[in-house]
Nucleic acid binder design. Structure first.
Length: 907
RNA sequence: GGGAGCAUAGCUCAGCUGGUUCAGAGCAUCUGCCUUACAAGCAGAGGGUCCGCGGUUCGAAUCCGUGUGCUCCCA
């Protein structure tokens, strides 16, 4: 331990040193034992991504909870890992291959592409882990899991097969959301809707065999889909179109005759009341088509260009085709009107391409039953959501209205769907080609095709005829197993880890993935573990910039985490994000809060320096009477009481997940109570030795404060912990247990905590009031005063008189029974303080102040009197309330008396 | 269109089951201090019709209704 501490706290060296030490000691590694587990699984970030401020918030919250649990007797286990993020990663790999190596995806085989993708993953996947380390996260690095690890891959396949066998997965042609850029299907949740200024086109459809120019006017937003029209629909009650019953109309551009159908679905007041029906390209039209048995003509290719079926504009992009279609309709005199129209369009969450409703054969999960289980888990209170009021309703609504989940993606990066096809299109679901072949044979045999010899393979197909489904599974179809499979719970059911760590304790995540992930994890948990995956879900808010804008790459308003850590230190960044993060609310993040954290580091560091200086100056052991001891150690007695009080407050705040409040409370305890009050109270005169009791107590308190703060700011606290006292190897704050430090209180006092706290408050109030007087009267800090106290509680003030004298620079403190002439008076509560000074004072200043106070107290008293004279109040209010009012009445009267007396002495 | 939430000091927010220890905190502002832990600091101070309007109540920032404004989710 050295006394040559640097002027300021230097985070860079300290952080690296401690993180290395903690991990080398294995403090973050967990294996099952007799203690209760506290399990957290990290929401796996995208493997190729970097941590943004949202992650920073999430990881910090988790680390706070995990460290707190580790220090509270739990076997804390925090599992890190990452997600393969199929669409996002594949898009990135495709893009980079083209840019860096000039390779196109279509020129690669599946195997070649995957090889590139894994290379990419190995190269960039480490960034996230590095960032998590830099932040100080206490994750178990022995448990790093990736959603494409072998065991995880197998688990996903196993679950797919199981759900298929249970009839919960099916394959079929449905209207799905198609991303023409990524060329894959999307789930409903992957589509984001935005308000767009569009146009409504009024197009004339001629009536077939109609008299002369007879036609029907149709309003559409998508004239480029006209070629796919297979009917025109009107409301059966619409007077205007009764005459069209049984008639046909001619679709423009392609001149196809289609029927006019009648359905109440059509809103007669919208547009012209006539709707063109394009079953292949609109979900509502699709449903109408099913109902009326209409053909669906798919006029689009998978990349969003027009297909041969469109007959015109073939190969043209859909938006280009829209322009052309409008031009041509105009030329043909069929376009009657264009009008501006506010509409909502679906965009792909990943590529931001306009999503195309498309009929396509995909794999789906039936959600109804599993959704019910997931709903029960939450409504029964088994899984508790924080903050509940905000998210419970959203959660319920989604689950009650859940639709089947489209899980197939036309991509290569991900778990390949374990379905095997024969050339005729029939398929089986099986983990391997061999199993699939066996299954086919069984089916073939069962169907009565008994082989006529002893040979076991007489089916008309060979194993080489089998082809595997080309598609992979939605990323979330693997993520939903996360809390189970990070402990190998699917691949090796009932292993010791899963039995010990599951269900996990708390899931910390953003509210934006409540459906994608949280709800589905609960489903998977209930389905495969018959138990919830976590006890609590804690939703953090969204991190926005100072102006309230969402942080995003395109706006460039998201700070780089490593750079922030570089500038402020990890503790300061953690402080910055936590201090501005009220539970569940969005938070406006600004660098300045990190700066505040840095200042805080420095403040603590300087308190350490002060203690080191005392050590150098010497420690004295005084012999004292009991009274003398209590007097000398009042500050310590008070701080002990205050510390106990705050510890309880913080504990309560943790229980409610009010982490930001907890940090504020600790911050204020350290800065205000410890540094500003306590240390000043016990500080010996310059160069003098400090009382041994006080010194030891101060060390104890400092230790406990560091322990209290450690979950939030692990590095600086660990560093200081080791500076405070010499520690044996293995005695580190990171694994210290709450309650173990400072249990044997250094200062034993006969005074009750609440008495001490009250007296402490009076002392603080008196100091502040007297300092205010000094300030207002322009006294220099060096100008000493003489102080006279007139109080009912002389005994109490005697105990703290030395502190008071020091804090207000009084060279004399006396107790008096009457007003002292020639003094400035200040009234604190019922007590009067007379300040005598050499400096000439302006009586008006304090007179004004006293008058102001008098006015307030009189108004206050009047209000109380009014209340107490109200019979209905006295009758109806609770007795203790009335009693309290009487007390207030009495207090106010006394205060007024004290002030008036003081005013009298001023003349 | 359906649902949820929010509105308190210049800014960001606390205020649990209604009652002047309830009108608060942190930033920001102003004043005075380079006091040998810390000027990245210390000591003080000022600042609010608790969004508008109704209601319930002895009593409303708090409960109810309504209007306005904002945010989010869903179609």
């Amino acid at each position: 331990m050295s006394n040559t501490l640097p002027k300021n706290f230097e985070p860079q060296q300290v952080e690296e040193k401690w993180y290395k030490h903690w991990t080398e000691q294995g403090y973050f590694n967990s294996t099952p034992d007799d203690r209760k587990p506290f399990t957290v699984v990290i929401p796996p970030p995208n493997v190729t991504g970097v941590l943004h401020m949202g992650h920073t918030l999430n990881e910090t919250v988790q680390d706070v909870l995990v460290r707190k649990a580790r220090m509270s007797g739990f076997n804390a286990c925090w599992v890190p890992g990452s997600d393969h993020a199929s669409i996002a990663t594949e898009a990135k790999v495709v893009q980079l291959l083209e840019k860096e190596k000039g390779i196109k995806k279509q020129d690669l085989s599946r195997e070649e592409f995957l090889k590139h993708a894994f290379e990419w993953k190995d190269k960039y996947g480490g960034i996230i882990n590095h960032q998590i380390k830099k932040l100080g996260c206490s994750v178990d690095w022995n448990r790093v899991t990736f959603t494409m690890d072998d065991h995880y891959y197998q688990a996903v396949i196993k679950v797919f097969i199981d759900l298929y066998n249970k009839g919960l997965i099916y394959r079929g042609a449905r209207m799905i959301n198609w991303d023409p850029q990524a060329k894959t299907a999307l789930s409903d949740e992957e589509v984001e809707y935005k308000d767009i200024q569009g146009k409504l086109y009024y197009v004339r459809y001629k009536v077939a065999n109609g008299a002369g120019d007879e036609s029907i006017l149709i309003a559409t937003q998508r004239p480029e889909t006209i070629m796919g029209d297979t009917a025109v629909c009107v409301n059966p009650n619409d007077e205007r179109y009764q005459h069209l019953k049984g008639k046909k109309v001619i679709v423009p551009l392609v001149n196809r005759e289609v029927p006019v159908i009648f359905d109440e679905y059509v809103d007669p007041s919208f547009g012209t009341g006539a709707l063109k029906v394009t079953p292949a390209h609109d979900i509502n039209d699709y449903n109408l088509g099913l109902k009326h048995n209409l053909p669906a003509i798919d006029t689009l290719n998978e990349d969003g260009t027009l297909s041969a079926a469109a007959q015109v504009f073939v190969g043209m992009d859909r938006f280009e085709a829209r322009k052309k279609a409008v031009e041509q309709l105009k030329a043909e005199g069929l376009l009657m009107k264009e009008e501006e129209y506010q509409t909502r369009l679906g965009f792909s969450q990943r590529t931001n391409a306009v999503v195309e409703p498309r009929i396509s054969t995909q794999w789906f999960v039936k959600m109804r039953e599993m959704a019910d289980d997931a709903l029960n888990a939450v409504t029964s209170g088994d899984v508790k959501i924080h903050p509940e009021e905000r998210f419970l309703a959203t959660y319920k609504y989604w689950l009650e209205n859940v639709k089947d989940w489209c899980i197939s993606r036309q991509l290569w990066w991900g778990q390949r769907i374990p379905a095997w096809y024969l050339p005729d299109g029939t398929f089986v679901v099986a983990a391997t080609r061999e199993e699939a072949f066996q299954e086919f044979q069984n089916q073939w045999a069962k169907a009565g095709n008994q082989s006529n010899s002893t040979a076991n393979d007489h089916s008309p197909f060979t194993i080489d005829d089998l082809t595997q489904d080309e598609d992979v599974l939605d990323t979330w179809f693997s993520s939903w197993l996360w809390p189970i499979e990070v402990f190998n719970g699917i691949s090796q059911p009932n292993n010791p880890d899963i039995n010990y760590y599951y269900p996990t304790s708390v899931l910390v995540t953003g509210q934006d993935i409540i459906f994608f992930w949280v709800a589905r994890m609960i489903m998977a948990g209930m389905e495969y573990m018959k138990e919830k995956p976590f006890e609590y879900v804690y939703f953090t808010g969204m991190v926005r910039d100072k102006q309230g804008r969402k942080m995003s790459k395109s706006l460039g308003n998201s700070p780089d985490l490593l750079e922030l850590i570089d500038r402020f230190g990890a503790d300061a960044v953690r402080f910055g994000i936590m201090i501005s993060a009220p539970a569940g609310n969005d938070l406006l993040f600004d660098d300045s809060s990190c700066e505040q954290g840095k200042f805080f580091n420095n403040k603590i560091w300087n308190a350490l320096k002060l203690l080191k200086m005392w050590e150098t100056n010497g420690i004295a052991s005084y012999d004292r009477s009991k009274e003398g001891f209590e007097k000398a150690t009042f500050a310590a007695t008070w701080f002990q009481a205050r510390l106990n009080q705050v510890k309880n407050e913080v504990e309560a705040l943790y229980k409610e997940f009010k982490l930001s409040e907890a940090l504020k409370t600790i911050y204020s305890l350290i800065w205000d109570d410890f540094c500003s009050w306590y240390l000043e109270w016990v500080k010996p005169p310059f160069g003098q030795p400090i009382d041994q009791h006080l010194y030891n107590s101060t060390l104890d308190y400092f230790e406990q404060l560091m322990q209290l703060l450690h979950p939030f700011m692990p590095f600086v606290t660990e560093e200081i912990y080791h500076h405070l006292r010499d520690r044996e190897n293995g005695n580190d704050l990171a694994i210290s247990q709450f309650g173990d430090l400072g249990e044997q209180q250094a200062v034993v006092s006969s005074l009750q905590d609440n008495v001490v706290l009250l007296l402490g408050n009076s002392l603080k109030d008196a100091i502040t009031a007297i300092r205010d007087v000094r300030n207002k009267n322009n006294m220099k800090p060096k100008d000493a005063i003489k102080l006279y106290i007139q109080s009912d509680n002389q005994k109490g003030y005697e105990l703290v008189a030395d502190i008071l004298a020091k804090q207000v620079n009084a060279d004399e403190v006396n107790f008096v029974a009457d007003a002292v002439a020639g003094c400035i008076t200040t009234v604190v509560g019922k007590d009067k303080f007379y300040i005598q000074s050499e400096v000439a004072v302006d009586a008006n200043v304090q007179k004004d102040q006293l008058l102001k106070e008098l006015e307030y107290q009189k108004g206050f008293l009047e209000a109380v009197n009014k209340k107490l004279s109200n019979e209905r109040f006295v009758q109806n209010a609770k007795p203790e309330i009335v009693e309290n009012e009487r007390k207030k009445q009495n207090d106010a009267a006394q205060k007024i008396k004290a002030i008036e007396e003081s005013l009298a002495t001023l003349g």
